[in-house]
Design a protein around this nucleic acid. Structure first.
Length: 802
DNA sequence: AGCACGCCGACT
DNA sequence: GTCGGCGTGCTC
């Protein structure tokens, strides 16, 4: 008997195993490993993934698979193995790993309904409810507040049964096509028989007579300047045939990408490319760290490596941090490789994303450019994986499965025996340290292209500004330099780090700060609706007119949001034209690209924005970059805050003077003596690296130690702390002596959505038993997780310590 | 997760 | 006596 091994769509620890099902004969010739199936599960019917087949099973009573959901597998054998590996290394459920690898559109939907079996119900209210129908969705019963127990009774009487439906979300876009149906001879005859008055129809007949390929109905109507009605008789008479054809949704509209060709390479680019090409030719698996300053031409190296991979008949995956934010990057890939590229933004709709994914599944493209999840593209012959801006924190998934894209990339590259390129101007310490130890291969590109020099960085000490009586958010230096650019017709980018510097509300009399009652973080003031909002939950409230604590009316909002900066610029420099880019102005689809285009066309002289303008942008006339609050990142409770600050400053500075015009950077800060600011000013990556490494060593942080963060949350703070303490003690007992345990301590975000959070941290060098110990602890707490709403998060190598 | 089964107190 | 509350255990 043929048995299918199935992972069912129930994300729970008790169902996190493989279930066996009989493959019924009628499905036997269609079924393949990697397909989604519909299976009975207890009283229910649910979706599952076939992850293997077998001839035997240890289970006595097997049920048969109900149906297949796919014609061809959605998971390749490689991806199935990869999914298991991801689940294992992140301590997640198999099902969560598989779901994370596939587009959202492939998730199953469920609904329940009751089906009539008898003509009459004992319960007269049921007769009324059914009203002649044979099936009712249970949602309808819940809506009218019908008592489910009466359904139970009717079911026991055999009057009805409960049916479970598995639905699908994926949809396929279709378009009407027109095809010539008659032979030319037949058409000639048909035409001759038409009345002389049917002028338009003859025209159309002539047009379709010369059609060899099907065209869209719409195109026919456009070219003939006619309407549906005119074509209808031709369809009826069988001159042409109308049929529906499936097409891919096109997220780019009708945008044409200008074809580009490989550029001549500078020496440093050649030196970087050579070993990669060599590996491609010999199918060697290496990890390269491409350390290139901003503007050094990393992208061209990527493009030419990919080209070589394609020449060898292989595929490439390119990961970019947040692709919708860098349309320029998409343009470069589409421009070079055209239709061979699938693009997976986060800004795409579910359907568009699904279609891009299917281009890969159907082997119609050779290259994927996308954000994190694109690492799971179902390619079967990968020749190269590139991670651009490898230091970006968005490469770490922050919910289950908590994978880091670098780990997955390296794993896939090992399977496919291909190189990986980790590109960055500011590699993470972990990555660069491995390159120095020759675990990874280091490729350095220290020079900017076209002999462009790095912009000069000036530090504006905001303490001095304050002492000198300047209470505004701009230093005198920055204002002067902005004026200069505007006079010269050049452009300015102003960068504001939103995190930690957004508008919070404080009472000037008593110092009271308005915080979220559920999350214990300061509320943010939103001017538009005069509301205070929480960043973590949905909480919002009205801006108070007096201080809730001391009733003073001097309660004001402090800090700076982009809106406020915009107003301030306009006050100081009235002639400035500002484009503001933040979450608010870029929410609408395509808004991002539109704003950038406006800036490109010089409809404004200042681009003001948050994180999203820090990377990838390249405008020839930008000669000044201002960082308004450099230290806002520096003060976050995270051991990576210095590294993040250095990365950010370097990244932002790279936006200025990339072309003929020389650039300048002004960094405003209250702590100009901090080493991450000083080294950023000098463009001294290796200096920063050494300094930061020595601190990491002293305080036993990565890359010298590995870390595991365990966060426990509960409604009751005492319970949360108690569980955290017990877990810490258990770990203390079962882990080796060399490992350091920190905690229990309150999390940096002590309270989120009415849950109190405590954490404990493991720092270790070598701890082969750790995962097993953690698994045991998790299973010990399983009952409490289910019953009393306890939550335990385990993050191996965390990126965010909050 | 969801569902059934089973055991207890509160009610016609 | 029965209804309905929730704790317990299972799903191939």
């Amino acid at each position: 008997m043929k048995i299918a091994k199935v992972v069912v769509d129930v994300p729970a620890s008790q169902t996190d195993k493989i279930f066996d099902y009989i493959i019924p004969e009628h499905l036997d010739s269609y079924i393949e490993v990697g397909m989604r199936v519909i299976v009975p599960f207890g009283p229910r019917t649910i979706m599952g993934y076939i992850i293997g087949m077998s001839d035997e099973s240890n289970v006595k009573k097997l049920k048969p698979i109900k149906d297949l959901m796919d014609i061809s597998p959605v998971l390749t054998p490689e991806l199935i193995e990869l999914g298991k590996w991801v689940a294992d290394y992140t301590l997640s459920f198999y099902i969560s790993a598989f779901q994370a690898m596939l587009p959202q559109a492939l998730k199953a939907t469920y609904h329940k309904s009751i089906e009539r079996l008898a003509d009459q119900f004992e319960d007269d209210q049921l007769n009324k409810l059914f009203d002649g129908r044979d099936e009712i969705d249970t949602q309808e019963l819940l809506d009218v507040g019908f008592d489910m127990n009466r359904i139970k009774k009717a079911e026991d009487l055999g009057e009805l049964k409960i049916v479970y439906h598995v639905g699908r979300k994926e949809t396929y876009k279709k378009v009407s096509m027109i095809k010539r149906q008659m032979t030319e001879v037949e058409i000639d005859q048909y035409r001759a028989e038409l009345s002389n008055r049917a002028k338009k129809r003859k025209e159309i007949v002539d047009y379709v007579a010369q059609l060899d390929e099907p065209i869209t109905f719409k195109q026919l109507l456009n070219e003939m300047h006619t309407t549906r009605q005119t074509v209808q008789p031709l369809i009826q008479d069988g001159v042409v045939n109308i049929f529906e054809q499936e097409i891919y949704r096109n997220p780019n509209g009708n945008k044409q990408f200008e074809k580009t060709f490989p550029l001549p390479l500078a020496d440093q680019q050649k030196q970087a490319l050579t070993p990669i090409v060599d590996d491609l030719n010999r199918q060697r698996n290496n990890v390269y760290v491409l350390h290139g300053v901003t503007g050094s031409g990393k992208t061209e190296v990527y493009l030419q490596s990919i080209e070589r991979a394609m020449q060898l008949g292989k595929e490439a995956i390119v990961l970019v941090p947040e692709i919708s934010l860098t349309p320029q990057m998409v343009n470069r890939f589409k421009g070079r490789f055209g239709d061979e590229v699938a693009v997976m933004h986060s800004a795409l709709s579910k359907g568009e994303r699904f279609d891009e994914w299917r281009k890969v599944q159907n082997q119609e493209v050779k290259v994927v450019v996308g954000a994190r999840s694109a690492i799971f593209a179902p390619f079967q012959n990968i020749g190269l994986i590139i991670i651009d801006e490898e230091h970006e924190s968005s490469y770490k998934q922050e919910d289950h499965p908590r994978y880091h894209v670098k780990d997955v990339a390296i794993k896939r590259a090992e399977t496919h025996m291909c190189p990986v390129i980790l590109g960055s101007a500011t590699p993470t310490l972990e990555t660069y340290a491995r390159a120095q130890k020759n675990v990874y291969q280091l490729l350095e590109m220290p020079d900017r292209m076209n002999q462009a020099s790095m912009p000069e960085i000036h530090i504006a000490d905001m303490r001095e500004e304050l002492h000198a009586g300047n209470r505004s958010m701009f230093s005198t230096m920055l204002v002067d330099k902005i004026r200069e650019r505007i006079d010269r017709g050049e452009q300015v980018v102003l960068f504001l780090n939103r995190r930690g510097y957004s508008t919070f509300v404080m009472c000037r009399d008593c110092g009271e700060v308005k915080t979220c009652p559920h999350c214990a973080i300061s509320l943010t003031y939103h001017q538009k609706h005069h509301l205070l909002k929480c960043h973590y939950c949905q909480h919002q409230e009205k801006m108070p007119s007096e201080c809730p604590s001391c009733q003073s009316d001097s309660i004001r909002y402090f800090g700076t949001g982009t809106q406020k900066v915009e107003q301030a610029i306009e006050a100081v420099i009235p002639e400035a034209k500002v484009i503001r880019m933040d979450v608010d102005t870029t929410r609408r689809k395509g808004a991002h690209e539109k704003l950038l285009a406006q800036f490109q066309n010089k409809q404004a002289n200042i681009l003001l924005g948050t994180q999203m303008i820090a990377k990838g942008l390249d405008f020839p006339d930008v000669t000044l970059v201002g960082v308004l609050a450099a230290d806002s990142l520096l003060n976050l409770p995270d051991f990576r805050s210095s590294e993040r600050t250095f990365q950010l400053l370097t990244q932002v500075s790279g936006r200025a003077g990339r072309h003929e015009l020389k650039g300048e950077v002004v960094i405003q800060t209250y702590s100009p003596e901090h080493y991450s600011i000083e080294y950023a000013k000098q463009y001294d990556y290796s200096g920063f690296f050494k300094k930061e490494m020595s601190l990491r060593k002293a305080f036993q942080y990565p890359p010298y130690f590995f870390m595991t963060l365990i966060t426990v949350s509960h409604e009751n703070p005492i319970r949360a702390e108690e569980v955290t303490r017990v877990i810490t003690q258990l770990l203390e007992k079962h882990l080796s002596e060399n490992s350091k345990l920190l905690g229990p301590t309150p999390s940096p975000l002590e309270k989120i959505k009415d849950r109190y959070r405590f954490q404990c941290m493991i720092k270790y060098k070598y701890e082969p038993e750790q995962k097993q110990v953690l698994k045991r602890i998790l299973s010990y707490y399983e009952p409490m997780i289910q019953k009393e709403g306890l939550q335990i998060q385990i993050d191996l190598q965390p990126y965010q310590l909050m």
